[in-house]
Design a protein around this nucleic acid. Structure first.
Length: 770
DNA sequence: GCAAGGTC
């Protein structure tokens, strides 16, 4: 008989086995899941890691067909819990049948308690056993040993609070999503799903609120009086003390008084040292924000990359709330690892400074240490083991952040001058980085020096220029992904591990998109939020998550039973649901509008022309077997035309086929195809449809020079094939303009190279004007 | 096909 321990993940299982056994354990495999065996105090121990939740809720089978079930029914249907990871359940049963006691050792949080209860439930199906709980806040040796010598009872309330979350989230998500999707499909043909959820919807809500601010923004005029000074040959600028002046008269009045002044007097000077402290250690949220802000890597990708770096042993566990190191954290051995290679300089600075001081934050989730490097690696090492495009950039950020955290503050010397011009005060500031400290290793945050000439109080300076400029206040900027993460974190939307996936869901649904680092809301997302805001405003706001959160907190605290929380939560969802359904028509009409627009946009690409048989529209049809043009009147009209098998097709709407083809299409970059006729290069109308692009008269015969483009070159040739040729630029996009050269009468060529301005010149290399 | 939460 053995003592069986279940942890939340494999990594924790092996770590705990190693600590409790002093490193003497065997790795076995049960149902191909790793199990760590050892003996302690004469007892047999077996530790297995789960993989997060191994059970999940869903509605019973008969509620699975969306069309056959009123979504409202879901609110009164209790979901059922099923095993979602069969091998783990089988392994638990096997271990439990040979056990005398079970110890739950998952993470010490709500979900961890719940995952433990999943194992408990499966274990109790095969054997009646005492089940205990080991509570630890980190995987350090002392904590683990303490937890296992002070086992406690599993916390039923805590586990049930997570149960309440799962059931309420599912009920709400499924009912609302099905209702929305089905209502819209009554009006618009779409396969898309319009989803709503207690995390994804308020996440989109943040983007929507910002969009509204931008849309409703009214710019205001303001004036600013600036001076350009010069002293000892160096220019520098100052701003009038009034700053942004919102009344034109006031700005004009000040400016009129001083506009002819030529000299300023330095009235006051102060020099102060300023410091910028190194950043706190990285927890998940901070890491994701910085990866987005500094590297332009999306939160989803950043978390996945960090996961891969962790699995390959380069960096620590990426999901942590903690931004402070434990007192006994071993910085020194990590730093020694970096004392060669590209981080050498910084590691040595820290090691040689005597005491190693980290700048700790204040958050302690009692889970894992802040994200830090585990071992030193080169770019090659990383790229060989981790197949993610930004693996090296992410690793480099983690290492640099780790080192920066241990370095000295950056020191600046800030100089402020007050310069009097005609009795008016102008403020001048300068800043010099005197000691870069941590900024040296952290190139992501740049601080530019703003240099001032050496000036003392009572000096006179030249006034080179005075300006009174009008500006407008600018609207707020669109949110960046980093800012969105901050908002989600602040309002408790999602967890450290799920926040990126809520952003991703919104992108997948077509609610918003990212362009670089900024997020723009799309039509569907804006309309959905706007209609929800008008009918069930609580849904668009973080409040919805807070309401459910407070219910489950009551369960955790023992102030409410699971059943009470579920019925209260269901009531809340029902209230919102009835608000939503009461404006079904208005919502569906507006939403269908945005969906129909999308449909038309994609259809437009597929529309080919008018069917000569029945007058309806012809469209392109793609099947597994191939593609062809068919009539939208099918099955009444069975008219079809073949299309070439390969090449991208574009309908050339401005071209008409002279031989009666229903449309002309461009096939790749190669040739044209007349629908109903065939390829244009076999047609006797070819010369008429595609006359050569004449650029000028041939200088040697009576023919004309025209552009000839072959697979690997392009040049000018003569229509009479007289043998005269001229060259044209080999690269860049070439256009023959209608404009003629004033010197020789040839056409002007326009050449546009990527990332360069277009150039225009005469096509004739022998032009007298060239 | 629907949510959010774990982790592989």
């Amino acid at each position: 008989m053995s003592i069986v321990v279940f942890t939340e993940k494999n990594k924790a299982a092996s770590q705990i086995a190693s600590i409790l056994s002093g490193g003497h354990f065997n790795r076995a495999s049960v149902e191909s899941i790793p199990v760590y065996d050892f003996k302690m105090n004469g007892k047999e121990w077996r530790i297995m890691g789960l993989a997060g939740h191994i059970m999940g809720y869903d509605f019973p089978e008969q509620f699975n067909n969306w069309r056959e079930c009123d979504p409202a029914v879901l609110l009164d249907t209790p979901p059922v819990k099923n095993v979602t990871k069969k091998p783990y359940a089988a392994a638990i049963s096997l271990l439990a049948s040979g056990a005398e006691e079970v110890v739950l050792a998952c993470d010490f949080d709500r979900e961890g308690e719940n995952i433990g209860f999943e194992a408990k439930e499966i274990a109790e199906r095969v054997a009646s056993l005492p089940v205990k709980r080991a509570r630890f806040s980190s995987l350090s040796s002392s904590e683990i040993k303490k937890a296992f010598s002070n086992l406690v009872e599993p916390d039923y309330n805590m586990a049930m609070s997570a149960e309440a979350r799962q059931i309420l989230d599912l009920k709400m998500g499924a009912a609302f999503t099905r209702f929305m999707t089905l209502s819209i499909r009554e009006r618009a043909r779409t396969k898309g799903v319009i989803s709503i959820g207690p995390c994804q919807t308020p996440t989109c809500g943040f983007v929507y609120e910002r969009e509204k601010l931008i849309k409703n923004f009214k710019p205001k005029d303001f004036w600013k009086i600036e001076a350009l000074f010069n002293s000892k040959g160096a220019d520098f600028t100052g701003v009038h003390r009034a700053g942004n002046i919102h009344e034109k008269e006031k700005a004009d009045e000040i400016f009129a008084r001083i506009k002819d002044c030529k000299v300023g007097l330095v009235d006051k000077k102060s020099v102060k040292e300023a410091r910028t402290n190194p950043p706190y250690p990285l927890n998940t949220t901070e890491f994701l924000k910085r990866a987005s802000k500094f590297l332009g890597v999306s939160p989803e990708e950043a978390l996945e990359t960090a996961e891969q770096l962790y699995l390959s042993g380069f960096t620590s566990y990426p999901r942590t709330e903690t931004n402070k190191y434990a007192d006994d954290f071993d910085f020194k051995s990590k730093l020694i690892g970096f004392s060669s290679g590209i981080y050498q300089k910084y590691a040595l600075i820290i090691l040689s400074s005597g005491d190693i001081n980290c700048r700790n934050g204040t958050k302690d989730g009692h889970d894992h240490p802040p994200i830090h490097p585990i071992k030193a690696a080169s770019k090659d090492d990383i790229e060989k083991s981790v197949r993610m495009p930004n693996a090296w950039k992410v690793y480099d950020l983690v290492v640099r952040h780790f080192l920066a955290n241990l370095m000295e503050p950056a020191l600046f010397e800030k100089t402020r001058l007050e310069i009097l011009v005609g009795g008016e005060i102008f403020d001048v500031t300068g800043s010099i980085l005197t000691n870069p400290g941590w900024l040296d290793v952290y190139p992501f945050e740049t601080k530019n020096d703003k240099l001032l000439p050496l000036i003392e109080e009572k000096d006179e300076v030249d006034v080179k220029e005075l300006k009174n400029t009008k500006s407008e206040t600018t609207p707020p900027k669109r949110l960046t992904e980093a800012e969105l993460l901050t908002l989600m974190d602040k309002h408790g939307i999602g967890t450290k591990a799920t926040a990126p996936s809520h952003i991703e869901t919104n992108k997948k649904r077509g609610y918003f998109e990212t362009k670089g680092k900024t997020i723009s809301i799309l039509d569907t997302g804006f309309t959905l939020m706007d209609t929800l805001d008008a009918t069930v405003p609580i849904l668009v706001q973080p409040e919805i998550r807070a309401r459910i959160e407070s219910l489950i907190q009551d369960v955790e605290d023992g102030n409410k039973s699971l059943d009470a929380a579920l019925s209260e939560g269901t009531m809340l969802i029902k209230q919102m649901y009835s608000q939503l359904t009461s404006s079904k028509d208005a919502i569906a009409a507006r939403m269908a509008g945005t969906i129909v627009d999308e449909q038309v946009a994609t259809d437009k690409k597929n529309f080919v022309g008018t069917c000569p048989e029945c007058g309806r529209m012809l469209h392109m049809i793609k099947t597994e077997k191939g593609r062809f043009v068919g009539c939208t009147g099918y099955p009444e009209c069975k008219n079809t035309y073949p299309l070439p098998k390969a090449g991208a097709l574009t309908v050339l709407r401005s071209q008409q086929c002279e031989k009666g083809g229903v449309a002309v299409m461009k096939v790749g970059n190669k040739y044209n195809w007349a629908v109903g006729i065939g390829p244009c290069f076999t047609c006797d109308m070819e010369k008429k449809c595609f006359p050569p692009e004449i650029v000028g008269p041939c200088p040697v015969c009576d023919g004309s020079m025209f552009l000839i483009v072959t697979k690997d070159s392009r040049f000018l040739g003569c229509t009479n094939r007289c043998g005269h040729t001229q060259s044209v630029p080999k690269s860049g996009r070439l256009t023959i303009l209608d404009r003629l050269c004033e010197h020789c009468g040839w056409h002007i060529l326009r050449v546009k190279e990527q990332k360069q301005d277009a150039m225009e010149f005469c096509a004739n290399r022998k032009c007298p004007g060239r």
